[in-house]
């Protein structure tokens, strides 16, 4: 099981994660903060997911594998 942990205080909606992996990440139109599709996160390649998480310039994203 993969969980994407978002530190919402750090996210400033740079959208790098969206550019890297739009199947999993999106930005909330209201506040610009990241939205995560947890179901889709289970299905994409781990390498892609890692790259998208690493692309965050504010380190707001983390992966928990259980």
């Amino acid at each position: 099981m993969i969980r994407i942990v978002v530190d919402r205080t750090r996210c400033f909606g740079y959208g790098n994660c969206v550019a890297a992996l739009s199947e999993v990440f999106d930005l909330n139109d209201e506040d610009g903060v990241v939205l995560v599709d947890e179901e889709a996160a289970q299905t994409v390649a781990e390498r892609q997911l890692d790259a998208a998480v690493r692309s965050c310039p504010t380190n707001a994203l983390r992966i928990n594998r259980t």
């Binding site: 909606g13 740079y14 930005l27 909330n28 139109d29 209201e30 610009g32």
Partner: peptide, 19 residues
């Protein structure tokens, strides 16, 4: 944000109607 190679690596609040 810019990398130490000068490349633009992030624009904040890039999405949405205000972005």
């Amino acid at each position: 944000m810019y990398g130490n190679d000068g490349k633009l690596v992030g624009m904040s609040l890039a999405g949405g109607d205000a972005g």
